[in-house]
């Protein structure tokens, strides 16, 4: 027990005193979270701008509704020129009761949107002008759909990725450096079991993962980023621990093959980076082509992402953990077994 405790403490001290590791564990993923969080914050909030010449009832109704952004022009030619130049999708020209829309053909979706909106307002104005109550009415209500605000998928994705990176690198680099420096050999000559050495390193990794989780989620919840956690967020903790164990095992496998720290670091990158991109760390994997989604199912990180997303922000319960937990545990067992087979005490 004392050996386990002292070893854990020794490794924790080694971790905390290593500035490069600290950077890649905490600041580096955080940079991605901050940068993507800020860049993607306003995506989808952009309104269509059109040029307007003249004024009247319809124009003021449009302005009050705020569905379009209006750019006022005095001169018809200047407004049309803007459309010709491709700066604006359409120009609305008001001549008394007569409204005319000149639109760019290139962007049909936008033009159609503009035409539909303007048409709607003209119809409304016409109905109002008759003094009759409208025969048909409709009302609109917002529905929470499956598509999420960027920060809502970024946080679980980057958290899973950050945890995976530090677990893989942590175990691979420790293993290689200890083998090279003959620390492993020194440990083998002491009356301690390999299990207590391994479990103390794993304890440090899981502790680090929990701190990562706390920091990343805490920062994403700041008002600038606006992450909203679901009620079942705490289910992320067992998932985080399970993920750490899986990626720790992966690191042991990488470390068993690599001869030098540089090789281990390169190999870990080759394993982790493509997996991160294909598993939906930086964008929701639902947006990827179907074949890519199928491929991504092979990666444990994809399942960790899915689980994180479900329990952190989608508000799903413990049943959402079944598949990710099974995949991660299976992965940890298989890879851990392989790693123990190819493990070498010395070069």
């Amino acid at each position: 027990m004392t050996a386990f405790r002292t070893l854990s403490l020794a490794m924790l001290k080694g971790f905390v005193r290593d500035k490069v590791t600290l950077f890649f564990t905490f600041l580096f993923p955080l940079m991605f979270l901050v940068i993507f969080g800020l860049i993607l914050r306003d995506v989808g909030a952009d309104k269509t701008r059109i040029a307007v010449v003249g004024d009247g009832q319809v124009v003021s109704a449009l302005r009050d509704s705020g569905v379009l952004e209006l750019e006022q022009y005095d001169d018809v030619d200047a407004a049309v020129q803007k459309v010709k130049d491709g700066d604006l999708p359409a120009a609305l020209i008001v001549r008394g009761q007569q409204l005319e829309v000149r639109f760019a053909q290139s962007d049909q979706v936008k033009s159609a949107t503009v035409l539909g909106i303007v048409n709607g307002f003209v119809d409304k104005a016409n109905v109002a002008a008759t003094g009759q109550p409208p025969r048909f009415t409709f009302s609109a209500e917002k529905v929470e759909d499956a598509s999420l605000k960027p920060i809502q998928f970024l946080t679980p994705g980057i958290l899973s990725w950050g945890v995976a990176v530090s677990a893989v690198f942590g175990s691979a680099l420790t293993l290689v450096s200890w083998r090279r420096k003959q620390v492993l050999r020194r440990i083998r000559l002491a009356p301690v079991s390999a299990t207590s050495v391994l479990s103390s390193r794993l304890l440090v990794s899981t502790g680090v993962a929990l701190v990562q989780g706390g920091i990343f989620v805490g920062i994403a919840m700041l008002p600038v980023f606006g992450l909203k956690l679901s009620g079942s967020w705490w289910l992320a903790i067992p998932l985080l621990l399970l993920g750490t164990i899986s990626f720790f095992a992966l690191g042991m496998l990488v470390g068993a093959f690599a001869k030098t720290e540089e090789a281990a670091s390169a190999a870990a990158n080759i394993v982790v980076l493509p997996m991160a991109f294909l598993s939906g760390t930086f964008f929701p994997v639902e947006q990827a082509p179907a074949w890519l989604q199928a491929v991504s199912k092979a990666f444990p990180l994809r399942h960790m992402n899915d689980g994180m997303l479900d329990v952190l922000v989608r508000g799903k319960g413990v049943e959402a953990l079944a598949v990710p937990a099974a995949v991660l545990a299976g992965f940890a067992l298989v890879v851990g077994f392989l790693a123990s087979r190819v493990f070498k005490w010395e070069e």
């Binding site: 002292t6 005193r17 440990i187």
Partner: peptide
């Protein structure tokens, strides 16, 4: 007691901590 290479130490630990860590392996 076996002495290995001069670099067989745990990362980033002080001289005293190295001894205490190795010592703990033997209780």
């Amino acid at each position: 007691g076996v002495q290995l290479q001069a670099s067989s130490f745990f990362e980033k630990l002080t001289a005293k901590e190295q001894l205490q860590t190795f010592g703990s392996l033997y209780g």
